[in-house]
């Protein structure tokens, strides 16, 4: 049956195609989400064995935590120093440069520490995890493990997950402490803000539960998100060179967006309605 008018006849079919494509995208995304959550549950189910063989976790802690130390410490120091300079510039306009310590500490402990450390962690450790697991899959090491009746999730994935979850809050705390030290260096030693009021105002304004504990909870959540995304992307990567590189890129992009979105949600819950 030929359409009477080609243009009019193709309109509905093109519309149907478009709707089909949207549907396909949605189903695809949902399917992937389902696979990812099943993968996450599998990791949690197989975590017991990774704690029984703790040296696997320790080995991964070395590559995710210790090797990220330099970048975290140096970035923390510089972020703190820049905060000190910029904060002083703004605060001295209102004649309240003694509040510099409060500003530096609160912005680091509440926001910048967890978020920037998590972003650095995603690009430093997350990408490495994805590339490693993707390459393991491409060279069929994971299949070889299964052949030997070794569960690759228990042997390879779960230790990396817990190493990431453990090291993230520690790295974020180091970032914040380093940043406060950087702010102190610039604010007190370089510019000459009064040292006593720098620390005392900071101590009276920063609350352990409200600020520091919430920051640690944030970085813990980011650690879970970044590591889970990195592991899933690696495990799910097509076993080709191109597939692994694409998965590595996706890890950094997805986990950065996840960090920022989660940060907004957590901040809305934690600091809502607080004077």
């Amino acid at each position: 049956m030929t359409p009477i008018c080609g243009w009019a006849g193709s309109m509905p079919s093109r519309l149907v195609k478009g709707v089909e494509r949207i549907g396909h995208r949605v189903i695809d995304a949902l399917w992937r989400l389902g696979v990812a959550s099943r993968f996450f549950v599998l990791i949690l189910l197989h975590s017991g064995s990774s704690f029984r063989r703790i040296h696997l976790v320790i080995k991964e802690l070395f590559s995710t935590g210790v090797l990220s130390l330099i970048i975290i410490l140096v970035s923390g120091l510089f972020v703190g120093m820049v905060l000190g300079m910029q904060g002083y510039d703004t605060l001295q306009r209102y004649g309240s440069e003694e509040a510099l310590g409060v500003m530096v500490a609160l912005s680091l402990v509440r926001e910048l520490g967890p978020v920037v450390a998590a972003l650095l962690f995603a690009s430093r450790a997350g990408s490495a995890i994805t590339a490693e697991i993707g390459l393991m899959k491409a060279t069929e090491q994971l299949s070889a493990m299964e052949m030997m009746a070794v569960n690759p999730i228990a042997r390879v994935v779960a230790p990396r997950f817990w190493a990431g979850v453990i090291s993230m809050p520690l790295l974020a705390a180091m970032f914040s402490a380093m940043g406060v030290f950087g702010g102190y260096l610039v604010g007190v030693k370089l510019i000459g803000v009064d040292e006593g009021s720098f620390w005392s105002q900071m101590q009276s304004a920063v609350d352990f539960h409200q600020d520091i504990l919430n920051g640690i909870i944030k970085s813990f959540v980011f650690g879970v998100a970044v590591t889970a995304i990195a592991l899933f992307e690696g495990y799910d990567a097509p076993p080709t060179a191109e597939g692994v590189s694409g998965a590595t890129t996706r890890t950094v992009v997805t986990s950065s967006l996840a960090i920022l979105a989660l940060d907004f949600m957590l901040t809305a819950f934690m600091f809502r309605g607080e004077g």
Binding site: L69, I166, S167, P169, L170, M174, V180, Q203, D207, I212
Partner: peptide, 28 residues
């Protein structure tokens, strides 16, 4: 590796302690 990881964990816990006592008011 054990040594480095031990140092890393101690450093992290130390940072939390510094934040709690020096930056926060837990010692107040």
């Amino acid at each position: 590796i054990d040594l480095w990881v031990g140092l890393f964990v101690l450093l992290g816990l130390g940072a939390i302690l510094v934040l709690a006592l020096k930056v926060g008011n837990l010692g107040g």
